[in-house]
Design a protein around this nucleic acid. Structure first.
Lengths: 337, 337
DNA sequence: CTGTTAGCGCCTTCAG
DNA sequence: CTGAAGGCGCTAACAG
């Protein structure tokens, strides 16, 4: 049977109140007594019972604000799924989650969402930060005031935060490149289409991709095309690029799957593709053999983990790692049938 | 703020005790009152607070016995890691885990371990069952007596249990086959080496592999070789098979990685291989490019989940799914650098 | 500086 | 059939 505060109190000949204060460094306790208690706790292998603490924590009603950078898309629906799963768990501990959505990449709106969250007494913020001066300044300020901010899915350069959760973009870029090389049989021509590098994660992924191709023989990477956030425009650009480079047979794509599938259709020639993320479309395309592989970047896990670290932070003042990298998973048709 | 029993009691004008009895169907409560309470609970969106229940459950000291089929190996060390992780979590709830190891595939010893566990008042068993009549009979009997038994990593045909946790062997077989086909550039000759089909999971994996090759053009599968549990003997067999089929360039392997790497070395010609599981050796071989890919079959998750379902079973009488399939993950050099 | 106690939500036992 | 009360381990407020 695990040791409790009561056990230690009995062993030390003091009250549980004193033991609690000593172990949690809440002061107001004779240093020598505290020393003795701490030693005893170690000897008796004491670990605080988290669920009992949880019952107490419940009365404090911690609120977590989740601030997105867009209204929604399929990738973020997955992230939200993870957030909801975490929410279910932390509810028993009296913690709650409030999600603030945003017109796509509207920095002013994101800023006002931050302010609204603070007004509404949020105790922490999970944010998909838009890379703009106002947002950067605001978050710097919050972190300075010791307000916990967690970056989700992407991050900001030189802006401090409690923790930053995202996939390993660089590695993800290398994996994508490797897969294209593999499906090509290590020859021929490939083209990569990546989203705007305004989001820093995308820069990193691009670098990973470049790193692989410059260091590995095999398929030749014709170019990396950066696509805008607008689907129609993206489709045009993609179609044009593919038309202008008829020797390209292999594609690495990150963005809205529907767009890419249309562009491939328009191209009117067999194209072998690797897609990032596993939207419904991507899943179907994979099943039907329209694309060769997909790289899933753990959106659900990211969402869950962003809430989970704040849960532990509130429950036991546990400082999370500065950066948490989630795994990417490689999927083929055979993985999902 | 989430609804509590107290809230419902107040709303219904009865005591907490009555509400509790009504909602948990513990009887001894006026049917009409019970009806009213249940309706109220639904309306007020009541969900029992798991951590509060946990504090109470603590006094019951549930014990889970984990019964392995071997002393240890690297794959099972990972499984045990997952079990330990789960143990940490359930300790607060007054539950404990005791692991019983076994001389390799010694059915008599496994049987006596089961009996020992029962004697020592285990409330549930997680077992990697050896496929032998005595074990099958014993487990059938236990399940008949409503004693919770969970199969871990493998299962027994027509032997009922509370739940069975393992990877999707058939799919895992298909994925391995697909990877070999992919790395071969869809031509040439391959050979597969699988462990003894005494463990039913291995049968399934083999079938998945055969299924893929009979339905997919590309590399030709020369044969599937079943390896014994003995490393030295395995090495001999593997070396012999590879020597007798000098045209074979591609290998799919499941078993002790060191054995396979030695055999590949002995063969003295370039061989491109896909290995199951991610032992230290496999990881190194992957990093150094000695093998092309690995398929990780989630041992850590399996271990964790086996304990976790019993945790929920004890905490809230939640019946787990009959079968829980864990994901396999595909790994290349780029996934682990 | 230290001890005592109420209470978090739930479950169980014991009275009524 | 129903209510009251104690207790799980921990925290915090208060009394000493």
């Amino acid at each position: 049977m695990p040791t409790t505060l009561k056990d230690i109190a009995a062993a030390a000949g003091v009250s549980i109140g004193t033991v609690d204060r000593a172990l949690k460094d809440r002061g107001r306790v004779n240093p020598q007594v505290a020393e003795k208690i701490k030693k005893l706790a170690k000897e008796m292998d004491y670990h605080p019972n988290q669920i009992a603490s949880g019952l107490v924590t419940r009365t404090r009603h911690y609120k977590i604000a989740v601030i997105l950078h867009i209204t929604q898309n399929e990738f973020f629906n997955e992230i939200i799924k993870g957030i909801r799963r975490a929410e279910k768990k932390i509810r028993d501990y009296g913690m709650s989650v409030q999600i603030y959505t945003c017109d796509d990449f509207d920095e002013k709106m994101q800023l006002s969402n931050i302010e609204k969250a603070i007004e509404e007494k949020a105790n922490a913020i999970v944010i998909v930060p838009i890379n703009s001066p106002v947002i950067r300044k605001k978050i710097r300020q919050l972190t300075c005031e010791n307000f916990p901010v967690v970056f989700l899915n992407t991050y900001l350069n030189k802006v401090p935060c409690l923790s930053s959760i995202h996939c390993d973009y660089f590695r993800s870029g290398r994996i994508g490149a490797m897969l294209v090389n593999l499906i090509s049989g290590r020859s021929g021509y490939a083209m990569a289409f990546f989203p705007s590098t305004v989001m820093l994660g995308n820069q990193s992924r691009k670098k990973g991709c470049e790193d692989y191709f410059t260091n590995t023989p095999g398929v030749h990477l014709e170019k990396i095309v950066e696509l805008p956030n607008d689907p129609k425009l993206s489709l045009q650009i993609m179609a044009k690029e593919l038309a202008e480079a008829p020797h390209v047979e292999y594609i690495l794509f990150c963005g809205d799957a529907k767009t890419a599938l249309s562009a491939m259709d328009v191209a009117g020639r067999p194209l072998h593709a690797v897609f990032y993320d596993l939207s419904t479309e991507t899943r179907h395309a994979l099943q039907k053999g329209h694309i060769c592989a997909a790289i899933e970047q753990g959106p659900e896990d990211q969402g869950y983990e962003s809430i989970n670290i704040l849960f532990h932070y509130f429950l036991s003042k546990k400082i999370p790692p500065k950066e948490i990298l989630m795994d990417s998973h490689i999927l083929f048709k055979e993985s999902i049938d």
